[in-house]
């Protein structure tokens, strides 16, 4: 199939809109999903631990 300039431009101008909106929605859902709250809080806190050895 031969893709001309016009088709490429039309694709670029439309597709980007939808996938970026989908991405934003996906990220927001993941971030605000209630069961994830604990995980995020734990992640923020555990780096402050003074332990400085790999876990075995």
């Amino acid at each position: 199939m031969d893709i001309g300039h016009e088709q490429l431009v039309a694709f670029a101008k439309s597709f980007g809109l939808f996938y970026l909106i989908a991405l934003s929605v996906g990220v927001l859902v993941y971030v605000f999903w209630p069961t994830n709250k604990k995980r995020f809080e734990k992640a923020a806190k555990t780096i402050l631990s003074d332990e400085d050895r790999p876990w075995q």
Partner: peptide
């Protein structure tokens, strides 16, 4: 995101916000 909380000895203000800004910045 690592050394600032570590040095201040305080967790990052909003971990959620850090994820949102990550995907925002990359895309």
């Amino acid at each position: 995101y690592y050394y600032l909380p570590k040095r201040a000895d305080r967790p990052i203000f909003s971990y959620r916000l850090s994820i949102i800004s990550f995907w925002g910045i990359t895309f």
